[in-house]
Amino acid sequence: MIPENFEKSILPLSLDERLAQIALLFQGKKLVFSTSFGQEDQAITYAIASQKLAIEIFTLDTGRQFQESYELIDLTVKKLGFNLTTFFPQTAAVEELVAKKGFNSFYASVENRKECCFIRKIEPLNRALQGADVWITGLRAEQSENRADMPMIEWDAQKNLYKINPLIDWSFETLEKYLTEHKIPQNPLHKKGFVSIGCAPCTRAISEGEHPRAGRWWWENSQKECGLHA
């Protein structure tokens, strides 16, 4: 059952206050935060680490990420001083996929791409969330049509946990201001037109005026989602 008046009580607060309140509200429960080290996730990571909140931080390594992303991970962990758990795809599943369909099967069809995303992202995420009571994400309503109506908190019956999106109401301008004020490390690819950064072969820079998610799976006419937040 979603805590009464949760969203109304959280909305007036700063990001740091929001996360501190969430940690207090669910004290004694297992809270986890999934980061892909994008700008939204960097803001949340800073708010958690700087306050030393009882929220575990984990990431998914698909094995196909940009070198800049790996460098940012090391820099962020060193600068903010927190424990990071990394979940990798099951080796056997990746080996079977590559043996049957090659390294770049995801370009062939939406179905193939979703198959790759499942093996490299969704299955590891399911393992990462085992035993968790609360899953915190960096989703913002502005990011895509699929996320526009997402609430700040919802009960995920399939995963048997609360999913909380503390930045859901934030604008990109608010996010940028927070990152700048706190001198939070950011991926250098952002300055090269990469707004939403995923796997290297599935991400391109966007042009001025393009939707922020246009650079993800650019060869597809899809909702630009991998299934993590379906």
Rank of each mutant, 00 (worst) to 15 (best):
W170K: 04
F82M: 08
I55E: 00
F88N: 09
K192Y: 15
Q130K: 06
V98F: 10
G215K: 04
Q42C: 00
A128D: 00
N146R: 10
K192P: 05
A141T: 05
R64T: 14
E40M: 01
M152V: 12
L13Q: 11
V98P: 02
C117P: 02
L189H: 11
H211K: 10
G227L: 03
L72T: 13
E115V: 12
Q90N: 09
T180A: 13
G209F: 11
I73S: 03
E4M: 07
E4Q: 12
E68S: 09
F66W: 12
F106C: 06
E56Y: 03
F82K: 08
N165G: 06
C116K: 07
A43N: 02
W218F: 13
K101C: 06
I10S: 02
G138S: 03
M150T: 12
L31R: 12
M152F: 10
D61Q: 04
L24E: 11
Q143F: 04
L25F: 15
Q42W: 01
P89K: 08
N160M: 11
I22Q: 08
F26W: 15
H190E: 06
F33Y: 13
T86A: 04
R127W: 04
L72C: 10
I168W: 09
C202W: 12
A99P: 02
P201C: 07
A49S: 01
A54C: 05
S50K: 02
K183I: 11
K30S: 11
S69N: 12
D149K: 15
G209C: 08
Q143H: 09
S207H: 15
P124W: 03
